[in-house]
Amino acid sequence: MTHARDRMDLDLPDFLSDGEGIDDLSRTQSRRPAKVVDGHIPSELGLWIFILWDMTLFALIMLVFLWERRSDRATFTESAHQLIQPIGVVNTLALLLSSYLVARALLAHRVGRHLQARRLVLGAIGCAAVFAGLKAIEYSSEISGGHTPASGMFFRFYFILTGLHLLHVIIGTVLLTAWQVTLQRRRPWAGTQKLAEGIASYWHMVDLLWVAIFALVYLVSAE
C-alpha cells in the first residue's frame, strides 16, 4: 500500500496506477465512529438537512405570498375564487393517499414483503399521475380563462408555488420508480434501508408541502 502512496508525488494520479491505490480496500473502514443516538433517524441525517431546507424555501415563498396579499386583499380574494377548488381538494386527497401507500410500502419492505411493497409503490405512482393529470387540466383551464403568471400577484405566486411543487412531484415519481426497481431486485433491507426511507421521506415532504399550499392558496385566500 505504501508503494502506491510513494507514487502520489509522481505524475500519475492514483486512478491510473496498476491496480493499487484507490481500489485498496484496506482503507474501507470508515474513520468516523458511529454516533450512538437515541432513536432512529429515517434514512440519514444529511437528508433531513435537505428536507428541512426544501420545506423552508417553500415556507418563505408562501409567507411572502401572504405578505403580498396584505396589500391587495380584495384582488387576491377575487383571483382565488377563479381557482377550481374541487380539483384542489381531489389533488390533496390523491397525495394523502399516495403518502399513505408509501408509508405502508416502507413497512412492507422492511419485513421483506417485496411484492406487497411493489404494489403499494405502484399505487402511489398512480396517485401521482392523477395529481399531475388534474394539474394539467387545472393549468389549461386557468390559462384559457385568461389567467397567466402575468395576471397579477396572486396568479404569479399560484403558478410559481404549484409549478415548483409539480417539479417536486415529478422528481418524487422518478425516485419512487427507482425504489420500485430495487424492490423488483429483492435486495436485502440492510442494503436499501437508507435509500427506501429517504425516498419515502421525500415523498411525504411532497405531500405535506401540498397540504400547506392548498390551505393557503386555495382556501384561506378565498375565504
Binding site: 403518502s99 408509501v102 400547506a212 390551505a215
Partner: peptide, 26 residues
Amino acid sequence: TILVAFTKVLFIGRDFMELRAAPFVL
C-alpha cells in the same frame, strides 16, 4: 384552516415520515 393544515403537516411528519421514532432533536 391554517391550524388544521399545519396539524396535518405535523401528523404527516410524525407518523408517515416516522419521526415518532426519531431522535428527540430531529
